[in-house]
Structure formats: C-alpha cells, structure tokens
Design a protein around this nucleic acid. Structure first.
Length: 442
RNA sequence: GGAACGGUGGCAGAGCGGACGAAUGCACCCGCCUUGAAAGCGGACGAGGUGAAAGCCUCCGAGGGUUCGAAUCCCUCCCGUUCCGCCA
C-alpha cells in the first residue's frame, strides 16, 4: 500500500511516479483517493471535536454526581445525549469514507524506483546479463521439447496427472521426481550460508494474502478454501512476509533473511490454453524462495545480492541464461524494482522465467504492519518507528529449471545427463535412461 | 467435534461502570553510586492519527449494543490454553 500521507504532502510526486506505469486508470484512482482523503480529514476533525466535548462532559458529570449535584449533572447529560447523536452520524460517515479510501488504496500499485527503465510492456524489458542464444546454435538432439524426451524416458506422466487432478497439473516419476526434489534441496543448500530455513504453512488467512498484495485485486488467481476461509499460497513469499506482521523489530536484528521450500498454487485464470505442455505452466509447482526484511538503507544492496544468488544458482547448473530488468509497464503491482532470470530451453525454443527478484520498498510492510526502531550513534533506540523494506526472489523455481535441464542435457541417444552438481542429491545418478522404476545406479 | 477457562503495554499480571492509556513486578533507557560491573537509589518508559505547539482523538482480541460515561455490563464472532474424542 502506498503512503496515505503522500496524498496530501506530495500528490504531484506520486502522480509523476505512477504515471510511469503507463496505465491511466491508476491516476484516476489516485486522484479519487486524494479527494476522499481530504474529505476524510474534515470529517475526522469534526467528529473528534464532538467526541472531545462528550468526554469532557462525562468527566464533569462524574464530578458533579460525586458532589451530589444531581440537577446540574442531568442537565449536562441531556446535552451530551444530543452531542452523542451527532457524533454517531459523523462516525458513520467517517467509517464509510475511510473504508472506501482504504479499499481504493489497496488497489493502487507501488511507485517504481527512479532507476526502473521506462517501457510499455514486457517487450521493453532490457537484458542486463547474458548471451543471445538462438535455436540454430543448438544441435538437433537438444532441440527436442522436454515433454517428448521426458515422456519417452518415463519420468513425466502428465496424462495421469490430468486424470487425478485435471488440466495443468503435472506428475514426475522415477528419476524425474527425484530431480524435482534434488532441485529443491540444491536451492536451499545454495542459500543456507545466509538465510534461515523456514517450513511455513501453505494455507494462509485472508489477512496474510492481503499483506503481500495478492488480495483484494487478484483473488481470481488464488485457490480459495472457502469453508475455512483459507487460501493456498501462490509463493512462499506470502507466509514468509507475514512472519513478523504487526511487530516492531530491533534495528540490529535487520536485515532478517529467510528461505523456504514450498509448493506454489496458482489458478492461472488468464492463461488457459497457454503453455499447456510439459512443465512450463502448472497449477501446482515447487519453489525455493528467499526473502529479506531490511532497513530502507540496506535494501538496494540486498536486491543486488539476491539477484546474484538467483543468477548463480542457474549459472552453476551450466544452463544458458539471461537477466532482464522489468520496465515500468511490466512491473508487478507491489514491486518497486524487479529483475528476472530466464533460462533458455532449446527444445521449446523459449526463454523461461525461472526467478523473479524484487524490492517492494515499504509497500508490503505497510500492509503487513512490520516496523523497526532506529537507533542513534551510540546504538540507543530512538523514539518512533519506521516501516521495514521487503525483498524477495525465487532462489529456484523447480519445473522450468527441470525442463531446461531435460532439454539442455539431452544426449543424442535420448538419455539425459544429470548435471554434476545435482548428482549428490540423486543418489549418485549420472544419466537418466529410458526406463522407469528404481533410480539407484547398478 | 464436545466441555471448561481465558484473550490487558516487550513479558508477567492487577483492574470488573467515572479521577484508567491503564497498578505492580521484570526487561529496556537515562542519571547517581562504583576502578569497572552487579546490587542499591532517583527518573524516564506502548503504538497510531492530527496539530507550529499546548492539546485533542483512537487503540485493553474483533464487531455490535446498553450508558452522560465501558478495559469493566450485554450480544455475536475470532483466537488461545487445558481435558475428552479422533488422528500422521
């Protein structure tokens, strides 16, 4: 959520920043919010004056009754009753305007960081790092889509996944299942030097899903368990961000760093019929997420560090990749600045997004109410609190890396070499051969 | 799922219709004392909104109600603890 105070202290600045997102409707909402805020303030002042009067009368009544002056007390009570009626009306109006404003504010996206490049859509995202791989540079035996290779090897059985759960669910078998789990373990191990591992709930409350920005605007993208008022998480970012919700952190605890493996559930409401084959897009997938709570001063360096970690995880698997920066027109609702890591899949002939690392400034922290207390030069806590900044990124998104490995490591005979780094996680398996069943090398 | 008891400041815990944003203890912070520390003594000590400031307003799980006035009384909901049931 954007800072409500800015609506009156720096509306022009907000307007300028949000205009860069290239969506005029946002500006209309912003102007509307500013008008509501101004009205709310007038009503609040009037209501509070009313309340102050009632409070002071009540004190007087108490004093008068103790002194036995019943007559004077009753006279004041009558006045207070009248004021009370007026207060009630004003309070109702206040609540109404306040709720409308809050609703509006929840839908207004974060302001992009000044360094975010301008652009209208994902076509304008500049490439920061990486070669330009082309289909033609790959030998024919690598230009086979992973779903064909994997099905032939018996390690992917989406047909039966569909039987069990429906379209856009996947199922890995044998070495394919082991590979998926190995990638999780690899992703965690690669970040264990600096991040605390968390095993968080995968079902969360409405408040928790609102804190990170998925609700209320993107309710259609999430799986809801209505009977129990719970939601299936679309990423571990959701529970991790809210761990310290409604808390005030000590300065020297920051930055706090967490990592988690979790399943991720997405309805993919707008994507029906897209990427339906193989492992490119599914309603449920595994992911390792890294996340930090930081001071505003720490955030920029952390963004770089986390981006490097995401990049290195792919680089060490020796997969062709590139890093792109997300331009203003493609920046997510809650994002202040973002980078994506994409891996090249020669079979699908496509760049697959395998990580998105983002800085949210205080946008999520305001919704989740995560604050910290600054300290002076001697380390003494100062009065007042500030909102933390949140950052997170996928350390490793399993299915697309899985797909990229199957395609990039495919041999001419149709087998797939296991990347060396992953062998310890796969009981030493060096090659996935066309057979299902046990995955221990003879 | 059934029953009982609870939800108050960083923690523990009083308060049960008026002087309560809230006793007291612990923790934390600032002084004094001390070579240093501990102990002791004195002081400060929740968060948010609004205002130049004084001040004013809000918050005792959430929402409603009663009252001139609610942490305190009533209703609804949520959450927790314990016991029983069930269960990996």
């Amino acid at each position: 959520m954007i800072d409500q105070r800015l609506l009156r202290t720096d509306l022009d600045g907000l307007r300028t920043a949000l205009t860069r997102r290239a969506r005029p409707a946002i500006i209309d909402e912003l102007e509307h919010a500013a008008r509501l805020d101004s009205r709310l303030r007038d009503i609040t002042v009037e209501r509070d004056e009313c309340r102050a009067r009632v409070n002071s009368i009540s004190k007087e009544v108490g004093a008068l009754r103790r002194d036995g002056n019943v007559e004077a007390a009753e006279k004041l009570q009558a006045e207070s009753r009248e004021l009370g009626g007026r207060e009630k009306g004003l309070a109702a109006e206040h609540d109404e305007v306040s709720a409308a404003l809050h609703e509006l504010l929840l839908g207004i996206p974060n302001a992009p960081h000044p360094d975010v490049p301008d652009g209208a859509s994902d076509a304008d995202n500049p490439t920061i790092v990486g070669p330009v791989a082309t289909h033609a540079t790959y030998p024919a035996h690598q230009r086979v889509p992973h779903w064909e290779t994997a099905e032939a090897l018996g390690i992917l059985d989406n047909e039966r996944a569909v039987k069990v759960s429906g379209a856009m669910f996947t199922m890995q078998r044998g070495a394919g299942a082991t590979l998926a789990r190995a990638l999780c373990q690899y992703g965690l191990d690669a970040n264990a030097d600096a991040f605390e591992e968390i095993r968080a709930p995968s079902l969360v409350s409405t408040a928790t899903l609102t804190a990170t920005g998925q609700l209320p605007k993107f309710a259609d993208d999430a799986y809801a368990i209505e009977r129990d008022d719970l939601w299936a998480i679309p990423t571990a970012e959701v529970p991790l961000t809210s761990i310290y919700g409604d808390e005030i952190l000590d300065y020297d605890e920051l930055p706090m760093r967490f990592m988690a493996y979790s399943p991720a559930y997405r309805r993919e409401a707008g994507a029906a019929g897209r990427d339906t084959r193989g492992m490119l897009r599914a309603h449920e997938f595994d992911k390792v997420e890294i996340l930090a709570l930081a001071t505003p001063e720490q955030a920029p360096d952390l963004l770089v560090e986390m981006r490097n970690r995401a990049e290195r995880a792919i680089a060490r698997l020796e997969l062709p990749y590139r890093v792109i920066e997300i331009c203003t027109g493609d920046l997510g609702q809650s994002h202040h600045r973002s980078f994506d890591v994409e891996v090249y899949a020669p079979g699908a002939d496509d760049w697959l997004e395998v990580s998105s690392v983002s800085w949210f400034s205080d946008y999520q922290a305001r919704r989740a109410n995560i604050r910290f207390r600054r300290v002076d030069d001697d380390g003494k806590p100062l009065k007042g609190t500030d909102l933390v900044h949140t950052l997170n990124g996928s350390a490793l998104a399993v299915p697309r890396v899985w797909a990229a490995i199957i395609e990039n490591y495919r041999n001419a005979d149709g087998s797939v070499t296991v990347p060396e780094l992953l062998r310890p996680y796969m009981r030493g398996l060096m090659r996935i051969e066309p057979r299902s069943g046990p995955t221990v090398e003879a």
